[in-house]
Every structure is written in C-alpha cells, then in structure tokens.
Design a protein around this nucleic acid. Sequence first.
DNA 1: TCATTTCTTTGATACAGATCAAGAAACTGC
DNA 2: GCAGTTTCTTGATCTGTATCAAAGAAATGA
Lengths: 251, 251
Amino acid sequence: MQKTKLIDFPAIKTACSRCSLQQLCLPQGLNSADMERLDQLVKRPRPLHRGEYLFCQGDRLKSLYAVRSGSFKTYSLGEDGNEKILGFHLPGELLGLAGLGHGEYRAAASALETASVCAVPFDRLQDLADHLPSLNHQLHKIMSQRISRDQEVLLLLGDKSAQERLATFLLNISSRFAERGFSAREFNLSMSRQDIANYLGLTLETISRTFSHLQKDGALEVDRRLIRIVDRECLANIAGACFTDASSATH
Amino acid sequence: MQKTKLIDFPAIKTACSRCSLQQLCLPQGLNSADMERLDQLVKRPRPLHRGEYLFCQGDRLKSLYAVRSGSFKTYSLGEDGNEKILGFHLPGELLGLAGLGHGEYRAAASALETASVCAVPFDRLQDLADHLPSLNHQLHKIMSQRISRDQEVLLLLGDKSAQERLATFLLNISSRFAERGFSAREFNLSMSRQDIANYLGLTLETISRTFSHLQKDGALEVDRRLIRIVDRECLANIAGACFTDASSATH
DNA sequence: TCATTTCTTTGATACAGATCAAGAAACTGC
DNA sequence: GCAGTTTCTTGATCTGTATCAAAGAAATGA
C-alpha cells in the first residue's frame, strides 16, 4: 500500500531546493552575479508541521514565500470563525502575493503536511527589483498570472455542478504536479475532503459522493487520498471546457 | 423620473479626466516632471457605445486602460459560447491587468453604456516603471489589490445565499461609487439583471426576486435599475461580515 | 496494545435556487 | 404614434446539493 507523502519523493529536493529562484528568474535569465544577490536574500526557515501557520491574516508583511516541499492552504476567516479556503499551494508556488499592496498578509497560510519554504524578505526584494528590470518584469508576470488563475476559479464557482467542479479541481492539481515533474496520473491529495469542499463551495458529503460517482463511472480510482486518473478524457469531458491542456507526462 | 445615466453626471469629467494618473501616482506623489512623462503616454481613444468591445479575450496586450466615464464588464467565454462575467469596472478603475503576464488579454471587456477610457501603452509603461521605483511600487500595489479583491469575490461565491450575495454586491458597488465622489445611497446600475446574476453565480429570476425581497424588507428602494439604499445597516447585516466599511458619505 | 479522535462513506430528507412559463413594462427603430 | 424587441417581474414546479444521521476506516496517542 502506497503511503508515500509528497515530501518523501526523492525528486522534490532536486526540483525545489532553489525553487524561489526558479520562480523569479528562470524565464528572464539573470546573470550569475544578479542570481547571487538574489540567492543571498533567500532564507530557509525550519520545516513546518501539519496545521502550523506560515503566517496569519493581518500579520505585517515580511516575506514572500516559495513552497519547497509539502503543501499549504491559504484561507481567510470571517469573524464568525469559519474559514474560507482561497487556494492550495504546491511545491514551487508562491505565497503572500496578495499582501503586497496592503503591507499585511490578506489570508492565513497553514501547512497541510510537513512542509518547508524559502522566504524572500519583501522589502529587500522590492529594492532589488527596483534595480533589475528583468526581475521586476518577472514579478509583474507572476502577479498577473495569479490574477488570471484566481479568475479561473471564479469561473469554476460561478455555475458549475459538483461533478464539474471536482473534475476541474483534479485536473488542475494533476497538471500542477506534472509541471513539477511528478506523475499527472496518480497522486496523493494532501488536503481533506472538508478542505476540498470548502474550496469548491460544496459540502464534504457532496465531495465524497462525487468521488464515488466518478469512480463508478470509471474516470478515477480513489483510495482515500490516493487518486489515480484512469480516464483523463472522461474527466476532461466532465470538467467541461475549463481544461484542455493534455499534460501527456504520464510517467 | 430620474433617467440620468452615469455619464450624465457633471462630476464625472472632473473626477476622471486624469484618472489613470490618479490611479498610478497619487499615493506615491511623483514629482511634476515624472508626472509629465507619464501624462505623455496616455491616450484618449474615442468613446465606446453600449456593447462595443474595448478588447477581446486573446487579443495581443497593447495597453492598460483606466475607465474615465461609463462602465465596463469583463468576461471570459467558454467554447460553448456562454460568457462568465468576471467583474464590473467603474470610473477610475483599471482594465487589462490580468494580461500582463501573458502578453494577451485574458478576458474580453465591453462597455455597459457609453464609456470612455485612458489607454496607457503597456510596453512604454513598463519602461517607465523600470526607472521610477515609486511608479513601480504603485503598480505592484494595484496588482496585489486586484488579487485580494478577486479573493473577496471567491469568498462571496463560496457559500453565501442569494440575499447575502446581492447585498454584498450592492454595498460593494455603493462604496466604489462613494470613493469616486458619487452618492453611496442612490445610484443607477449600468448592468442588467442577467449580468448581475451571471456575476454572482445565480439566475436572473433569483436576482429579480431577491431585489423584491430586499425591497419588501425595507432595505432598498428599487425602481428598475435605480437603486436607493434605505437601510444600510440592514443591508450590511444581510451581507454578513463581508462589508463593514461605513462609507458614511451619503450626500 | 487499545481507546480516542479524526476522516470518510453512505442513506434519508429538506430546501434554496434553477427551470419553465407567462405577462408587464420599458426601450427601439420606423 | 405603433410594432417589435428586450428587460424585468412573478408564479409553479423540479432538482441538485445541503443537512441530519449513523456507522465504518484510518490515524493518533497513551
């Protein structure tokens, strides 16, 4: 029985030890002196365990974070105490962007499993970006990608059925795994049914039922949090027009 | 009978003739030479009429736009042809941000009524921002505010009832009017019931019913698209914890 | 090891909002 | 002004998901 947690994959360390640098620099290709300067900014705080906070809603903005291993959820909590999950963050992805304009974090981030991050002090990043246009453009790019990704979620929550939402969610997660060099076909979800339900605007019972249903239809094999995508075609049809990227990396 | 369209308010021209400059520079206070350079970038295309496109999904990114008068909706369309409205844009607000990271517009923008914009050529803005840290920081700020605003909408669509959604929507619109110097208490909606429904993930019938209901409860007076907020307190209670800004500007 | 807690599945029932339908009111162009 | 179209309101019915309930499976901790 496969009990592998994300963090146990050996490829993680290779893929993500310099993940914040990759995120910020890869496309523009800073020269090595500039890379060096950026590298010096990056801190590696101790790993966090499941449920621990990376930051809380309203904390003063200190750093942007890039996930090195494990995964996080970000959520905002209304004063009635209940949380609304805004997103899940896999290795290589950035946390804290929404705070840039406000000087404080707009949501809380907590680890879904044992997880580690790179921290990039915000003010020093900003200073550096002022002198490195390519870094700066990359920042713009990342932020606007975030905007359009959030807008895709709006699309999702707009008027889609439970099946469409879950199928879209799974394909999304799958392709994010694939981007980082993991299997797009089989993976462990690090979040609970409750978390998925919250994120998709449904209840955990509906998520559970929908998993069962997708399994009965032969699109998935579900063993608790281990998901195997059996019929990607079928899943994509159910998801609707949202996802068409083949992500044929099914190693 | 009040038939005034937004564009007829005399205050609009005063408030918005330099709106893109206000948006980009006000908080940081560029010096007048820098303001001058930015001002030279700004173009004023001819006004658009209801239903005309400012840009389409997939168009190459040329400019960022700031709404001068009138209003716009941005929407993305699935290949099944049906559109999903991502947002409404009132005078002073920016359009096209989500395209920054992609080189093309991520959604279409069309005028809800006769409307005009300022256009800021994107590449030249980027050049200028490279040399003006304060402008650059302002761009960062605007983008991250957009991210957190989109996330608020996620919150809204997550698990709120029709009443909560509509009340939140109206308070949101109201406070955006107030920011621009218009009445927060009484205003004309420039979008149809169908557009509101689409945006809020409901049907137009539900929107219509909910308007009637809010009116019966004494929170609103509704005369087709003219809305008067009678009991802001009540509306805020219905909206839930989402909106607490008093916006006491009820002139 | 067992007891406790957390997570997940499945079933029965209720309800908010969707859908179908029809008519009223306002706007359009001639 | 008048026909035609679009937008809005209201009613009747249907349905997908929430809610309530219970029990099984896995993780946790002593």
